[in-house]
Amino acid sequence: MSATGRKTAPLPDDIRAMKGSDPIVSLTAYTTPMARMMDAHCDLVLVGDSVGMVLHGLPSTLGVTMEMMILHGQAVRRGLERAMMVIDMPFGSYEESPEQAFRNARRLMAETGAGAVKLEGGTEMAETIRFLVARGVPVMAHIGLTPQSMNTLGGYKVQGRGQAGDGLLSDARAVAAAGAFAVVLEKVPQSLADRITAEVAIPTIGIGASAGCDGQVLVVDDMLGLFTAFKPKFVKRFATLGEDGEAAIAAYAAEVRARSFPGPEHVFGDDAPERG
């Protein structure tokens, strides 16, 4: 199954059915224009809490609010017709209890039109995932490096090396058994990602994991070269739009200062017909 040519958005069960078949293509989006660009090419579009760092200049994802996620979720929803939209639950919106998680997940889905929510955590979040799924909320899990837990993980470090790999495998099994339809594996060793992919029944979506995962996700501003504050090892720049944009702004500034812009073709005469 591929997003190309699809007329309707896939459901969580459709994504689950892609396990071991065509790779699942996913990117983050935060705005309507960006969502429109990726709609024909992605199976999943994730409204990620990375929006806090990418668009709002926050130092981490911890300051992202429900209101921010809803605002950007609504914008992304307007740009999608064929891809499934998943939205992140921000830090503090689900950890307290399954009931808190349901209230906030219901709000996110109702106010944005998202097809599913994503939350971070493994074994410790299995009860919450089970509670949500039983009440009609599809859940994508996220294990390995979980950015909302960066303060307890010691920063943005690779997770699951050595004996810690058994713990991540247990996390993957727990979220799958709880009913998650897919699981993101972030910044884990390739061999561990391959092992988890082989041993769990739901699709794995890698970001800094392995090409052997059932799918991949990247932050779109990273892969387009728009966000350049830092570049993780797992990011490939497919474009350099940040550099191109800065060069264009510099050229504009130079022409304004030289009074060469606007030119005759950009201004209106007294009686010439308007065009454009």
Rank of each mutant, 00 (worst) to 15 (best):
A114K: 06
G115S: 13
G115R: 01
L119Q: 03
G121A: 03
G122L: 01
T123F: 04
E124V: 11
M125K: 14
A126W: 00
A126N: 05
E127G: 03
E127I: 00
T128R: 06
T128Q: 04
R130G: 10
R130H: 12
F131G: 04
L132D: 12
L132V: 08
V133R: 07
V133Q: 06
V133E: 09
A134G: 03
G136K: 05
G136R: 06
P138W: 05
P138L: 04
P138M: 04
V139R: 08
V139L: 05
V139A: 10
M140V: 14
M140H: 09
M140G: 06
A141F: 05
A141D: 12
H142K: 10
H142N: 11
I143Q: 10
I143E: 14
I143P: 10
I143K: 12
G144K: 08
L145M: 11
L145N: 08
L145K: 06
L145H: 07
T146I: 07
T146K: 02
P147G: 14
P147S: 14
P147H: 14
P147V: 04
P147D: 14
Q148M: 05
Q148F: 01
S149H: 15
S149Q: 13
M150G: 01
T152N: 10
T152Q: 15
L153H: 09
L153S: 13
G154N: 12
G155P: 11
Y156H: 15
Y156R: 10
K157Y: 02
K157R: 15
V158T: 15
Q159H: 12
Q159L: 00
G160W: 06
G160L: 00
R161K: 15
G162Y: 09
G162T: 13
G162N: 10
